[in-house]
């Protein structure tokens, strides 16, 4: 099946997932590429865990309502309402609400590097990125490439991607570690 069909199947079939990611950010200007890697898990819609292990430890948790960002070195937690923050972002492809084509215009991106590609353009103006390509094989997302309005390209590979594993809900709740400074535009600071 073509990329678009595989992506539609993926979104329909995937209730949850877990695995590892490798992210490379290439800036238009000569800045050296930024490599980062870590693990992820998600449970649609809106619950996810995106944990950077390298080059530093940073954890993003979406508990369905709020986005928690914990940075170990800063020893600080930032919390904000998810609201439509996921809306038309690359993250929405993986763990947004089911209706992808509400936020994205999907088009066939052809086959290359052993993947069937989908071109996804955000329907909303001002979504912060220009275009995204998603590479699938065997009905699974293998690679995502996003180009933002500054010509910077972020590529995310998924060396491990387990579909619909048993995921315990506790993974998508976040309790700020003791002693951590919590700042945010949300009055209720405790996790649920």
């Amino acid at each position: 099946a073509g990329g678009v069909e595989q992506l539609r199947q993926f979104v329909k079939a995937t209730r949850s997932a877990e695995g590892e990611f490798e992210q490379t950010v290439l800036a238009k200007s000569g800045r050296k590429p930024q490599q980062a890697a870590g693990s992820f898990a998600f449970s649609r819609p809106g619950k996810f865990r995106w944990e950077y292990q390298t080059p530093y430890q940073q954890l993003l948790v979406g508990d369905g309502e709020r986005l928690w960002i914990w940075d170990r070195d800063l020893n600080q937690v930032t919390v904000k309402r998810i609201g439509d923050a996921l809306g038309a972002t690359p993250a929405a492809i993986l763990f947004g609400s089911g209706d992808l084509e509400q936020n994205f215009e999907l088009a066939e991106g052809g086959d290359s590097e052993g993947l069937a590609w989908v071109e996804a353009r955000p329907k909303q103006e001002g979504s912060g990125f220009e275009a995204m390509r998603i590479g699938l094989a065997g009905g699974q997302v293998k690679r995502m490439e996003m180009r933002d309005n500054f010509g910077q390209t972020t590529t995310v590979l998924f060396p491990r991607f387990v579909l619909n594993p048993p995921v315990d809900a506790g993974r998508f709740r976040f309790m700020p570690p003791t002693g951590a400074d919590v700042i945010g535009d949300d009055t209720t600071k405790g996790g649920r």
Partner: peptide, 27 residues
């Protein structure tokens, strides 16, 4: 250059003698 936690550029601000310009992710 300010990048969001997922690595996308959120905004760029340049300043020189002629003044300052900020460009945000939504252009």
């Amino acid at each position: 250059t300010l990048l969001n936690p997922l690595g996308q550029i959120a905004a760029q601000l340049e300043q020189d003698a002629s003044g300052a310009e900020l460009v945000t992710a939504d252009g």
